[in-house]
């Protein structure tokens, strides 16, 4: 009798252990990071579901004429954003109104897009799918197209137990893949874990970062997830008022979501309208280009002062946020399966 009890306890312990190990492979919270915002209980990760999301991410079937995929504006090697274009372009070479954001550590984000127009990761993909300048398609029609393929119905059956494809499962699958895009292995992270050390220059840059930038670009995500006015003069042609477009509250005028600085080495151009093409231009903006208005971030009202050497040191630190393991992780690349 006692033997049976011991064996069954042992068995359940092993089962529990293997379950935990498997779960850790799909998503882990890096040491010292906050709890994710995303509610995984409502969309538990599985390998099959992540794989569908990954396929959809790289599949131009999401666009009206099957030319444009998520990957068109979010390339892995450039931190899942669109380089060399101030404003991202989509279907029929149409140019949008904003610079595509880097896709990273999305499980910790509550609101999406530069103005927070999207309130949940699951429904984020609806925006680029439907946008006239991006994919110019509807979710209803995407579902019809997916249902008619020879591959997707079987994949959805395997993953969700039903070959009838719905908007819910398409969106949840895309979320699953998005959630796995965690970047937490930059030199910065290794230094924090005691596996590496900063050079003198990087260490000085880190101190400058903490003094001048960290109030908005808060560690470890390098964003405080808030909407801030960082003093960019209004672009006359775009007239983009940012967050205020959504809240219609004057206190939100010219505020945009604070982007993460992770992998910033590869995510140029910078800012919501891509107006700066390198980090030097970005730093010069904070030192001498800030436009004062009532909604300007309080830290910037005090001004940022950096010498030439200090700028070099700050950039040296910013380059420690590059995570090559993330940028070249084949799990995030186009699925050859």
């Amino acid at each position: 009798m006692r033997k049976t009890v011991v064996i069954s306890i042992l068995c359940s312990a092993i089962a529990l252990l293997s379950f935990t190990v498997k779960k850790q492979l799909l998503f882990t919270i890096p040491e010292g990071w906050p709890k994710p915002v995303y509610d995984f209980k409502k969309n538990p990760l599985t390998e099959q579901k992540i794989e569908i999301g990954r396929r959809l991410f790289y599949d131009p079937i999401l666009s009206r004429d099957s030319t444009t995929s998520c990957n068109s504006c979010h390339l892995q090697y450039t931190a899942f954003t669109h380089v060399d274009h101030r404003l991202s372009h989509g279907i029929d070479n149409r140019i949008g109104t904003r610079n595509s954001p880097a896709l990273v550590n999305l499980a910790w984000s509550k609101l999406f897009m530069w103005d927070g127009a999207v309130n949940h990761l699951d429904v984020q993909a609806l925006a680029p799918i439907a946008n006239h300048d991006e994919m110019d398609e509807s979710l209803e029609h995407v579902i019809k197209k997916l249902q008619a393929t020879s591959t997707y119905p079987a994949l959805f059956y395997e993953a969700f137990g039903d070959s009838v494809i719905t908007g819910e499962v398409v969106l949840k699958s895309i979320s699953q893949f998005m959630l796995t895009l965690v970047s937490a292995n930059a030199k910065y992270d290794k230094v924090k874990r005691g596996e590496d050390t900063f050079s003198v220059k990087e260490a000085k840059g880190y101190a400058l970062f903490q003094k001048n930038c960290a109030s908005c670009h808060a560690e470890p995500l390098f964003t405080n997830m808030q909407f801030e006015n960082n003093g960019l003069p209004l672009d006359d042609s775009l007239k983009d008022i940012g967050r205020m477009k959504i809240t219609r509250n004057a206190a939100d005028s010219l505020k945009f979501k604070v982007p993460t600085l992770r992998n910033i080495e590869f995510s140029q151009p910078y800012m919501h309208d891509g107006r700066f093409k390198n980090l030097s231009q970005v730093l010069n903006h904070y030192i001498m280009g800030v436009s004062h208005s009532s909604t300007l971030n309080p830290r910037l009202q005090k001004g940022v002062y950096l010498s030439g050497n200090e700028k070099t040191e700050l950039v040296a630190f910013l380059l420690t946020l590059t995570d090559k393991e993330f940028l070249y992780n084949t799990k995030f690349s186009y699925s050859k399966k």
Binding site: K42, N43, H120, V123, L126, A127, A130, L139, I143, L171
Partner: peptide, 22 residues
Amino acid sequence: STSGALGGDLDPAKGMFWTWQS
């Protein structure tokens, strides 16, 4: 309205969910 992708009558594919602003 802030619970992500839901099913049945609440499925965003029903065309009753705004795409550009959730």
